[in-house]
Every structure is written in structure tokens, then in C-alpha cells.
């Protein structure tokens, strides 16, 4: 088990290097730092001195890969944009944002509010959609199933923006049941969290219910289910002991991988409800064209995704005794 984990982590490393190279190419090779400076300072009326100052302030005045002006071999490699801006992300050094704050500290402070929304949304959504999917599978082929699926498809066809805008308008503005936006500390937070969580659950319900129903239907058509019925087991027992258990592998494949990404929060929900999480941080950075923050978030997102893949493999051993990691 430990050996397996170590090997998986070793496999993950080249992928992270690849992600690092992709982001480096995107941010420094596609456009030169001069272009970025011109963009940030305004296209017209920008002096070369202003560009030079902008680059020095952010450390973009170094060469890309190889600093031939540096005195020693070590500094020739390390005193470059690639080493300072990209390679140092591996040790958790993301540099400073445009407003001068340390990105790592900012991310650490914002991960918790993000998780406070994303985790309940995820758990409630998972429970509710699996329940509904089991329900629809139980009534498969009936009118109830047909209209249930039709409702799911209709719900999938509504842009998530409308769920958020509509929900915020109805619940918070017209009915005044919850605050419109904001975030509180400690126990006070739930008043602010309840609406974003409910909207998040409803917004994702259509697609996930339909997906789980497809998985359950596939399992329900298998031979072992017929055998179980032939043995005279009750329908409830067939559903919960056989179908649900065997459907765990495809469900886990899709679900576990996204658990670490919950830290990143929900981009849209957070920005609409003014929650100081990583999602709104990312959106603000994109809108302010804060390249350093976007770069850091890309790297963290990829790292969390890789963690998710490893967790997925581990979770298989929990539900399927035939799978052994070696």
C-alpha cells in the first residue's frame, strides 16, 4: 500500500512538471513580459521606463531560462523567470499578487470559506441525487420515470447563472429569507451559507441524477440482479444490497476525483454571494488580469486534481475487495 502510494506520487510528479511547463509557456512565451506590462499600464502613452519599472517590480526583468550574466552556475539557472516564477511553485512559493499580498497566505485564508460552501453542497447534492436516481430506477419504465428524466434534462438545460440570479432574487430579495450576500464568522456563517448551498444543490441536481440513474439502470440489467430476484430476495434488498453496492465503482470514479477540488470552491456562487473564498479570488484575479494569482490557481488546481486521482484508486479498495493496490 505504502509502496503503491509512493509510486503514484512519483508518477504524479512528471504531470505536475508538465502543468508547470504549460502554464509557463502560456504566461511567458506566448506573450513577452513587455506585452503584459503594456497591457497592464494601458496600451497607449506608455514609456519604456514605465515598462522596465513594472518588470523590475515583479521580477520579470530576468531572462527566461538561462541568465548568462549571473556570476555562478547556480545563479545562472536560478536567477531566471522560469526558476523564480514557475519552479518555486513546487515548494509552495507563489509570489505576490498585484496588490502586493502574499498569494500563499491569501489562499490559506480563503480555502476555509470555500470549503464551507463546497463541502455541504457536494454532500447534500450527492445524497439527494443518488436517492432520486434510485427512486427513478425503482420506477423504471413508468410515467414517473419518464417525467423525472424529462425534468432532469430540463434542469440541465438551464444555465447555472440563472439558478444563482433567480434564486438570489426570489429568496433573498423578494421573500427576504436570507441575506443577499456576505459572509460571517463562526456560527453566524450558516445564515449566509444556506442559500448558496441550496442553489448549488439544485443547480447540479438534474445532471447528476440522470447520470446516477444511467449507472443504476446498467447495473439493474445485469445477470446477478436477476439471480438475486430468482432467489426470492425482496426488491428493497436487491436495490440496496446488490445494485447500490455494485454501482459504487462507477460512482466513485466520478465523485472522489473532485473532492480535493472542493477547496477551489465554486467560482460563480462565491462571486455572486460575496463569499471571500478561492472561487471569488480567482474571478477577481481574472477580471483584474492578475497573472500571478491565475498562475498559482492553475498549479494548485492541477495538484489537487492529481491528489483526487490517487484518492479514487484508494477508494476502490474500500468498496471492491477484489481490487488490491500493489
Amino acid at each position: 500500500m505504502t509502496a503503491y502510494l509512493l509510486r503514484r506520487l512519483l508518477y504524479a510528479f512528471p504531470i505536475l512538471i508538465g502543468v508547470n511547463l504549460v502554464t509557463f509557456a502560456l504566461f511567458f512565451v506566448v506573450n513577452t513580459p513587455d506585452d503584459m506590462a503594456r497591457m497592464q499600464l494601458g496600451i497607449k502613452h506608455v514609456t519604456p521606463e514605465a515598462i522596465a519599472l513594472w518588470k523590475t517590480e515583479r521580477g520579470y526583468d530576468r531572462p527566461l531560462f538561462w541568465n548568462s550574466a549571473a556570476p555562478t552556475l547556480a545563479t545562472r539557472v536560478s536567477d531566471t523567470i522560469f526558476f523564480q516564477k514557475s519552479a518555486r511553485m513546487f515548494v509552495g512559493d507563489f509570489g505576490a499578487a498585484e496588490d502586493g499580498r502574499d498569494i500563499r497566505r491569501e489562499i490559506a485564508a480563503r480555502a476555509l470559506p470555500s470549503l464551507a460552501i463546497a463541502l455541504p453542497t457536494f454532500l447534500l447534492g450527492l445524497g439527494l441525487s443518488i436517492t432520486l436516481a434510485l427512486f427513478l430506477t425503482f420506477f423504471r419504465g413508468t410515467r414517473l420515470d419518464f417525467w423525472g428524466v424529462a425534468l432532469c434534462v430540463a434542469m440541465m438545460s438551464v444555465s447555472s447563472l440563472f439558478y444563482i440570479i433567480g434564486g438570489q432574487y426570489l429568496v433573498a430579495k423578494l421573500w427576504r429569507l436570507t441575506p443577499i450576500s456576505g459572509f460571517g464568522d463562526g456560527m453566524d456563517a450558516w445564515r449566509f451559507l444556506i442559500l448558496p448551498v441550496v442553489i448549488g444543490v439544485i443547480g447540479g441536481l438534474g445532471a447528476s441524477t440522470r447520470w446516477y440513474r444511467a449507472i443504476f439502470l446498467e447495473e439493474a440489467g445485469r445477470d446477478y440482479v436477476r439471480t438475486a430476484r430468482a432467489r426470492g430476495l425482496s426488491e428493497a434488498r436487491v436495490f440496496f444490497r446488490h445494485i447500490l453496492k455494485n454501482a459504487m465503482i462507477p460512482i466513485l470514479t466520478g465523485v472522489v476525483a473532485i473532492i480535493p477540488l472542493l477547496f477551489l470552491g465554486a467560482l460563480l456562487t462565491e462571486s455572486f454571494f460575496g463569499i471571500p473564498g478561492l472561487g471569488s479570488y480567482t474571478i477577481d484575479a481574472i477580471q483584474a488580469q492578475d497573472f500571478a494569482v491565475v498562475r498559482a490557481m492553475v498549479f494548485i488546481g492541477a495538484a489537487l486534481y492529481i491528489v483526487g486521482l490517487i484518492l479514487t484508486d484508494l477508494s476502490y479498495t474500500l468498496v471492491d475487495p477484489r481490487i488490491r493496490l500493489s
Partner: peptide, 30 residues
């Protein structure tokens, strides 16, 4: 390897990074 690398970056973030760079390119070359 190529598609694992691309796939492991959350979609919105990769798109955001690429679009930001595309904007820089279009705006600096009017």
C-alpha cells in the same frame, strides 16, 4: 502524458489563463 497534463488543469482555470493571454495578444496588436 499530454492529455493527462491538460486534463488535470481544471477547465475554467486553463481557459481563463489562455483567454487572458489571448486578450493581451489582441490588445497589444491593434
Amino acid at each position: 502524458y499530454l492529455y493527462t497534463v491538460l486534463h488535470s488543469i481544471p477547465g475554467v482555470l486553463l481557459i481563463a489563463a489562455a483567454v487572458l493571454m489571448m486578450q493581451v495578444m489582441i490588445d497589444t496588436h491593434p
